[in-house]
Design a protein around this nucleic acid. Structure first.
Lengths: 128, 128, 128, 128
DNA sequence: GTGGTCTAGACCACC
DNA sequence: GTGGTCTAGACCACA
């Protein structure tokens, strides 16, 4: 894992783990590496890894069986989607909307954005 | 002004000022509040305001007339539009696109976003 | 059995066993499950169960017949009642009283508590 | 401050601070001691104090003005009462009820408990 | 072996 | 001056 300079390491660990879960590389119920193990692996202090794991436990993404280790919680995926969608609409989207308006961007400028949305729409139809 | 927790205050002041200019609430050539005035107003340290003004001067948004005060520079608006549009497409947009895809948001979810784009399209037509 | 997060499992096993005895689901002289049996049952390490049994033997609640197993000691119930009532009044009750006062809870809030006390009063009358 | 042996220090700091707030020794909006200051005062590591403050910020009891310090949040008192009352009814009370039942305690035994409740009832009447 | 707390000390950005 | 993160290392209880 490569850490970017100006984001907290414990958050980057969390982001990476979340990614593993969302992309299915880690499945609900899976045991994740022990604090010591991961710390050694990515050459980071135990405490930092611990902080990351504790955060994810609080968020309901991980569960802790004492003396055994941390496990991906069974409903991690839906919990994550909920957290992230909520964050997107309350934190991420509003300033974007504002900026699009202020910068007077129109559909020509934002064609790649529209393409993504269009793509998602079709994905949903397929699944039905 | 309400300051968000995890972004530097002096950057938030800058963002707010930029916004005032882009939306026409501050016009090129206008005198802006003195450092101590604004500092008192928004209950922030004078150094913080100063740092913000200095940054904007460096960016060519403000001009400083010694002993008189800071003024919105004459080409602030076009300068800003260029800077910000560029930033928007290289910095802001890409992670948004990724997130929209990961969260599988579709046009129903993002109706407010689409509404803004639509609104901008019409604005442009009127101006033609 | 569901284990709560922040209390030692071996203590929780003890509490559960004590409960079984006080409520008469386990009677004096009864053989209790073997260490390995209970461990398998509740999905816990055998050491943990052993520790719990050892504790209860020390407290005089259980007796160990070598090669046969653990049994509820004959005077377990009266022993327990004494231990627990004493503990209740010296350890458990005082902080509760304090908290009820601080939180300004009144008889309306605590109706379930009062109901239990009332229920116990009647139980005693019946037995006289 | 005297720390009891077997409870986490950072939680004891929180408990003490909560007490100060609930008893009115710290008022909403008050600045509390800086992390370094309190750490030196009670001879505990900065990190430990920090952890305590961060926890209380998360709980909405404290607010943080960057570069200035931590302040008692304006609605700390009601927030606290909510947290604690909720905890009392979901965590504290149920095992108490169970124990009272199992130990067959009656109103004679629990006279001090009833006295407190009675006292609270009168307090409320006075306030009306 | 596991998680969890605490210390001591460094370094950073921000006010 | 303030909070905040990270490290290195010790010590503990629990499984």
């Amino acid at each position: 894992m490569n850490f970017s300079e100006h984001k907290n390491i414990f958050l980057q660990i969390r982001d990476w783990m979340v990614d593993q879960i969302l992309t299915g590389k880690l499945l609900p119920g899976d045991k994740i590496p022990s604090v010591r193990e991961l710390a050694a692996d990515i050459e980071v202090n135990r405490n930092t890894v611990m902080r990351s794991y504790a955060l994810m436990e609080e968020e309901g993404i991980l569960e802790n069986k004492r003396g055994i280790g941390f496990f991906v919680s069974l409903d991690a995926k839906s919990t994550l989607l909920n957290i992230q969608r909520k964050e997107f609409f309350t934190e991420t989207l509003p300033p974007i909307l504002h900026q699009i308006q202020v910068l007077r961007l129109d559909s020509t400028d934002l064609k790649s954005l529209l393409a993504v949305i269009h793509f998602n729409d079709n994905k949903h139809e397929e699944e039905q």
